[in-house]
Protein backbone atom coordinates (compact mmCIF):
# COMPACT_ATOMS: atom_id res chain seq x y z
CA UNK A 1 0.00 0.00 0.00
CA UNK A 2 1.48 3.31 -1.04
CA UNK A 3 1.54 6.52 0.87
CA UNK A 4 -1.92 8.05 0.57
CA UNK A 5 -2.30 11.60 -0.59
CA UNK A 6 -3.54 12.67 2.83
CA UNK A 7 -0.57 11.15 4.65
CA UNK A 8 1.78 12.68 2.17
CA UNK A 9 0.26 16.13 2.65
CA UNK A 10 0.47 15.73 6.42
CA UNK A 11 4.10 14.83 6.19
CA UNK A 12 4.81 17.71 3.92
CA UNK A 13 3.10 20.11 6.33
CA UNK A 14 4.94 18.65 9.27
CA UNK A 15 8.20 18.94 7.41
CA UNK A 16 7.43 22.54 6.62
CA UNK A 17 6.51 23.22 10.23
CA UNK A 18 9.71 21.60 11.40
CA UNK A 19 11.61 23.95 9.16
CA UNK A 20 15.04 24.75 10.52
CA UNK A 21 14.91 21.80 12.88
CA UNK A 22 15.94 19.57 10.02
CA UNK A 23 19.33 21.18 9.96
CA UNK A 24 20.48 19.58 13.23
CA UNK A 25 18.73 16.37 12.23
CA UNK A 26 20.73 16.05 9.06
CA UNK A 27 23.89 17.31 10.67
CA UNK A 28 23.78 14.45 13.18
CA UNK A 29 23.08 11.88 10.49
CA UNK A 30 21.05 8.74 10.98
CA UNK A 31 17.94 10.79 11.65
CA UNK A 32 16.20 11.13 8.30
CA UNK A 33 12.82 12.72 7.65
CA UNK A 34 11.41 9.28 6.92
CA UNK A 35 11.94 8.28 10.57
CA UNK A 36 10.27 11.34 11.96
CA UNK A 37 6.84 10.83 13.45
CA UNK A 38 4.60 13.28 11.65
CA UNK A 39 1.25 11.87 12.68
CA UNK A 40 0.78 14.82 14.95
CA UNK A 41 1.30 18.06 13.10
CA UNK A 42 4.33 19.72 14.58
CA UNK A 43 5.81 16.60 16.17
CA UNK A 44 9.19 16.17 14.60
CA UNK A 45 10.73 13.43 16.72
CA UNK A 46 9.78 10.84 19.25
CA UNK A 47 11.87 8.56 21.45
CA UNK A 48 10.56 5.60 23.37
CA UNK A 49 12.90 4.61 26.15
CA UNK A 50 12.47 2.27 29.10
CA UNK A 51 11.22 5.24 31.14
CA UNK A 52 9.07 7.45 28.95
CA UNK A 53 8.05 8.46 25.50
CA UNK A 54 9.60 11.82 24.75
CA UNK A 55 8.42 14.04 21.93
CA UNK A 56 10.00 16.98 20.21
CA UNK A 57 7.42 19.43 18.88
CA UNK A 58 7.77 22.65 17.02
CA UNK A 59 5.53 25.56 17.98
CA UNK A 60 6.29 28.80 16.19
CA UNK A 61 9.94 29.57 16.66
CA UNK A 62 10.31 27.14 19.55
CA UNK A 63 11.21 23.50 19.86
CA UNK A 64 9.66 21.81 22.86
CA UNK A 65 10.62 18.61 24.61
CA UNK A 66 7.54 16.93 25.99
CA UNK A 67 6.76 13.73 27.85
CA UNK A 68 3.63 11.91 26.85
CA UNK A 69 1.49 10.21 29.46
CA UNK A 70 -1.85 9.02 28.20
CA UNK A 71 -3.23 11.85 26.13
CA UNK A 72 -1.43 14.50 28.13
CA UNK A 73 1.85 15.98 27.06
CA UNK A 74 4.00 17.65 29.68
CA UNK A 75 6.34 20.30 28.40
CA UNK A 76 9.80 19.99 29.91
CA UNK A 77 11.82 22.38 27.81
CA UNK A 78 11.38 25.14 25.27
CA UNK A 79 14.23 26.09 22.98
CA UNK A 80 14.64 28.69 20.29
CA UNK A 81 17.13 27.30 17.73
CA UNK A 82 17.57 30.79 16.26
CA UNK A 83 18.45 32.23 19.65
CA UNK A 84 20.03 29.45 21.72
CA UNK A 85 20.76 31.73 24.69
CA UNK A 86 17.07 32.47 25.18
CA UNK A 87 15.55 30.78 28.23
CA UNK A 88 11.81 30.86 27.46
CA UNK A 89 10.64 29.22 30.73
CA UNK A 90 10.55 31.55 33.74
CA UNK A 91 11.70 28.79 36.10
CA UNK A 92 14.82 28.13 34.03
CA UNK A 93 15.76 31.78 34.33
CA UNK A 94 15.01 31.74 38.05
CA UNK A 95 17.29 28.73 38.57
CA UNK A 96 20.25 30.90 37.51
CA UNK A 97 19.78 33.01 40.64
CA UNK A 98 21.91 30.33 42.31
CA UNK A 99 24.90 32.09 40.74
CA UNK A 100 24.38 35.04 43.10
CA UNK A 101 24.45 32.74 46.15
CA UNK A 102 27.43 30.53 45.41
CA UNK A 103 30.82 31.42 46.81
CA UNK A 104 32.52 30.12 43.68
CA UNK A 105 31.32 28.99 40.25
CA UNK A 106 33.91 26.40 39.32
CA UNK A 107 31.91 23.21 39.58
CA UNK A 108 28.21 22.63 39.00
CA UNK A 109 25.97 19.59 38.68
CA UNK A 110 22.43 19.39 37.35
CA UNK A 111 20.15 16.46 38.19
CA UNK A 112 17.55 16.11 35.42
CA UNK A 113 18.69 17.25 32.01
CA UNK A 114 15.50 17.79 30.01
CA UNK A 115 16.46 19.78 26.94
CA UNK A 116 19.61 20.92 28.72
CA UNK A 117 18.92 24.61 28.22
CA UNK A 118 19.89 25.67 31.73
CA UNK A 119 23.17 23.74 31.56
CA UNK A 120 24.00 25.13 28.11
CA UNK A 121 23.22 28.67 29.28
CA UNK A 122 25.44 28.33 32.34
CA UNK A 123 28.15 26.73 30.24
CA UNK A 124 28.06 29.62 27.76
CA UNK A 125 27.81 32.52 30.20
CA UNK A 126 30.04 31.20 33.00
CA UNK A 127 33.27 30.25 31.25
CA UNK A 128 35.06 29.33 34.48
CA UNK A 129 32.58 26.55 35.31
CA UNK A 130 32.48 22.86 34.54
CA UNK A 131 28.96 21.44 34.64
CA UNK A 132 27.88 17.82 34.80
CA UNK A 133 24.32 16.89 33.82
CA UNK A 134 22.94 13.67 35.26
CA UNK A 135 19.92 12.20 33.47
CA UNK A 136 18.35 8.78 33.96
CA UNK A 137 16.59 8.54 30.62
CA UNK A 138 18.94 7.82 27.67
CA UNK A 139 16.20 8.94 25.25
CA UNK A 140 16.26 12.41 26.82
CA UNK A 141 20.06 12.57 26.63
CA UNK A 142 19.90 11.69 22.94
CA UNK A 143 17.16 14.19 22.05
CA UNK A 144 18.84 16.99 24.00
CA UNK A 145 21.90 16.58 21.80
CA UNK A 146 20.00 16.08 18.56
CA UNK A 147 17.49 18.92 18.82
CA UNK A 148 18.30 21.21 21.75
CA UNK A 149 21.83 22.20 20.98
CA UNK A 150 23.43 20.44 23.94
CA UNK A 151 27.08 19.87 23.06
CA UNK A 152 29.13 17.89 25.53
CA UNK A 153 32.70 19.09 25.84
CA UNK A 154 35.48 19.62 28.35
CA UNK A 155 33.22 21.83 30.49
CA UNK A 156 29.88 20.11 29.84
CA UNK A 157 29.62 16.48 30.81
CA UNK A 158 26.55 14.28 30.23
CA UNK A 159 26.05 11.28 32.49
CA UNK A 160 23.23 8.76 32.09
CA UNK A 161 22.55 7.65 35.66
CA UNK A 162 20.17 7.91 38.58
CA UNK A 163 20.72 11.31 40.20
CA UNK A 164 20.82 10.04 43.72
CA UNK A 165 23.24 7.23 42.98
CA UNK A 166 25.48 9.67 41.09
CA UNK A 167 25.53 12.18 43.94
CA UNK A 168 26.12 9.51 46.59
CA UNK A 169 29.14 8.23 44.64
CA UNK A 170 30.52 11.63 43.59
CA UNK A 171 34.03 12.19 44.86
CA UNK A 172 33.96 15.89 44.03
CA UNK A 173 32.32 18.81 45.75
CA UNK A 174 30.10 21.25 43.90
CA UNK A 175 29.59 24.98 44.16
CA UNK A 176 26.10 24.78 42.64
CA UNK A 177 23.75 21.79 42.64
CA UNK A 178 20.68 22.16 40.41
CA UNK A 179 17.74 19.79 40.89
CA UNK A 180 15.14 19.54 38.16
CA UNK A 181 14.13 15.89 38.01
CA UNK A 182 10.56 15.60 36.82
CA UNK A 183 8.88 13.22 34.54
CA UNK A 184 5.58 14.74 33.57
CA UNK A 185 3.24 13.35 36.15
CA UNK A 186 5.59 12.55 38.95
CA UNK A 187 8.84 13.21 40.71
CA UNK A 188 10.97 10.28 41.88
CA UNK A 189 10.51 10.11 45.66
CA UNK A 190 14.16 9.39 46.43
CA UNK A 191 15.13 12.78 44.95
CA UNK A 192 12.99 14.84 47.33
CA UNK A 193 13.78 13.39 50.76
CA UNK A 194 15.70 14.64 53.78
CA UNK A 195 18.27 11.90 53.24
CA UNK A 196 18.82 13.02 49.64
CA UNK A 197 19.33 16.61 50.75
CA UNK A 198 21.79 15.37 53.39
CA UNK A 199 23.81 13.75 50.58
CA UNK A 200 23.72 17.02 48.63
CA UNK A 201 24.89 18.92 51.70
CA UNK A 202 27.90 16.63 52.03
CA UNK A 203 28.78 17.20 48.36
CA UNK A 204 28.63 20.99 48.52
CA UNK A 205 31.85 22.97 48.46
CA UNK A 206 32.14 25.64 51.19
CA UNK A 207 29.75 28.44 50.27
CA UNK A 208 27.87 26.13 47.90
CA UNK A 209 24.16 26.26 47.16
CA UNK A 210 21.37 23.91 46.08
CA UNK A 211 18.66 25.16 43.72
CA UNK A 212 15.55 23.10 43.11
CA UNK A 213 12.74 23.64 40.65
CA UNK A 214 9.37 23.00 42.31
CA UNK A 215 6.27 22.64 40.16
CA UNK A 216 3.49 22.90 42.77
CA UNK A 217 1.12 20.90 40.58
CA UNK A 218 3.37 17.87 41.02
CA UNK A 219 5.23 18.47 44.26
CA UNK A 220 4.06 20.11 47.48
CA UNK A 221 5.88 23.40 47.98
CA UNK A 222 5.39 23.33 51.75
CA UNK A 223 6.62 19.74 51.94
CA UNK A 224 9.78 20.65 50.01
CA UNK A 225 10.46 23.73 52.15
CA UNK A 226 10.16 21.61 55.30
CA UNK A 227 12.47 18.95 53.82
CA UNK A 228 15.15 21.44 52.75
CA UNK A 229 14.88 23.24 56.11
CA UNK A 230 15.42 19.94 57.93
CA UNK A 231 18.91 19.80 56.38
CA UNK A 232 20.03 23.32 55.47
CA UNK A 233 20.33 26.45 57.60
CA UNK A 234 18.67 28.76 55.11
CA UNK A 235 15.93 28.27 52.50
CA UNK A 236 14.89 31.09 50.14
CA UNK A 237 12.12 30.95 47.56
CA UNK A 238 11.73 32.55 44.17
CA UNK A 239 8.46 32.67 42.30
CA UNK A 240 8.77 31.95 38.58
CA UNK A 241 5.55 31.81 36.62
CA UNK A 242 3.62 28.76 37.85
CA UNK A 243 6.71 27.35 39.52
CA UNK A 244 8.97 28.10 42.42
CA UNK A 245 12.71 27.85 42.73
CA UNK A 246 14.00 26.86 46.15
CA UNK A 247 17.50 27.92 47.19
CA UNK A 248 19.12 26.15 50.14
CA UNK A 249 22.48 26.71 51.77
CA UNK A 250 24.29 26.56 55.07
CA UNK A 251 25.70 29.43 57.06
CA UNK A 252 24.07 32.77 57.78
CA UNK A 253 21.20 34.05 55.64
CA UNK A 254 22.26 36.38 52.84
CA UNK A 255 21.08 39.95 52.99
CA UNK A 256 19.24 41.43 50.04
CA UNK A 257 21.98 44.03 49.68
CA UNK A 258 24.75 41.42 49.57
CA UNK A 259 22.91 39.39 46.94
CA UNK A 260 22.27 42.52 44.88
CA UNK A 261 25.91 43.51 45.04
CA UNK A 262 26.98 40.03 43.97
CA UNK A 263 24.39 40.02 41.17
CA UNK A 264 25.71 43.33 39.87
CA UNK A 265 29.31 42.21 40.08
CA UNK A 266 28.46 39.05 38.13
CA UNK A 267 26.55 41.10 35.59
CA UNK A 268 29.57 43.30 35.03
CA UNK A 269 31.97 40.38 34.69
CA UNK A 270 29.79 37.81 32.87
CA UNK A 271 27.21 39.86 30.91
CA UNK A 272 24.43 37.43 31.71
CA UNK A 273 21.53 37.49 29.26
CA UNK A 274 19.09 37.50 32.19
CA UNK A 275 20.43 39.80 34.90
CA UNK A 276 20.21 38.21 38.34
CA UNK A 277 19.24 41.51 39.93
CA UNK A 278 15.81 41.26 38.23
CA UNK A 279 15.18 37.81 39.68
CA UNK A 280 16.16 38.91 43.16
CA UNK A 281 13.01 41.03 43.19
CA UNK A 282 10.82 37.93 43.56
CA UNK A 283 12.80 36.65 46.54
CA UNK A 284 10.96 35.35 49.58
CA UNK A 285 13.72 35.12 52.15
CA UNK A 286 13.74 32.62 54.98
CA UNK A 287 10.94 30.26 53.91
CA UNK A 288 9.53 28.01 56.61
CA UNK A 289 6.92 25.30 56.77
CA UNK A 290 5.33 23.25 59.54
CA UNK A 291 4.78 20.35 57.16
CA UNK A 292 6.35 16.99 57.88
CA UNK A 293 9.63 16.69 55.91
CA UNK A 294 9.76 13.97 53.27
CA UNK A 295 11.99 11.07 54.27
CA UNK A 296 13.17 7.92 52.56
CA UNK A 297 10.73 6.11 54.85
CA UNK A 298 7.71 8.29 54.16
CA UNK A 299 7.47 10.44 51.07
CA UNK A 300 3.92 10.42 49.73
CA UNK A 301 4.77 12.31 46.54
CA UNK A 302 3.30 11.55 43.15
CA UNK A 303 -0.18 11.04 44.56
CA UNK A 304 -1.71 14.29 43.47
CA UNK A 305 -4.88 14.24 41.46
CA UNK A 306 -4.10 13.03 37.95
CA UNK A 307 -6.52 15.33 36.14
CA UNK A 308 -5.13 18.35 37.91
CA UNK A 309 -1.57 17.39 37.03
CA UNK A 310 -2.63 16.76 33.47
CA UNK A 311 -4.28 20.16 33.13
CA UNK A 312 -1.39 21.91 34.85
CA UNK A 313 1.14 20.07 32.73
CA UNK A 314 -0.50 20.80 29.40
CA UNK A 315 -1.13 24.47 30.05
Amino acid sequence: MGLSRRHFTERLLAAAAAGGAFAPVLAFGGETPARIDARRLGTIAKRESQYATTYVDREGAYLRMRFGVNRCLFTETSYNPDDPAELPSPYTRAMTVALAYAGQLKRMVEIGLGGGRLASYLHDFVPETKITCVELDPGVVELAQLYFGVKPGPRLELVTADGRVYMARAKERFDVILIDAYQGTYVPFHLVTREFFAILRRKLAPGGVVAQNIAPSVLSLRGMIATARAVFDVVDLYRAGNSFVLLAHDGPAKSGAALKARAEALQASHKLRYPLALMLETREAGARSEERPYTDDFAPVGYMDYDRRCRAGTK
Binding site: A161, D162, H190, F196, D296
Partner: peptide, 11 residues
Protein backbone atom coordinates in the same frame (compact mmCIF):
# COMPACT_ATOMS: atom_id res chain seq x y z
CA UNK B 1 10.76 1.42 48.40
CA UNK B 2 13.51 0.85 50.97
CA UNK B 3 16.08 -0.03 48.32
CA UNK B 4 15.34 2.76 45.83
CA UNK B 5 17.28 5.46 47.75
CA UNK B 6 20.36 3.23 47.62
CA UNK B 7 20.21 1.85 44.10
CA UNK B 8 18.05 4.40 42.32
CA UNK B 9 14.96 3.71 40.25
CA UNK B 10 16.57 2.53 37.04
CA UNK B 11 14.56 -0.22 35.36
Amino acid sequence: RMMTPYFGSAI
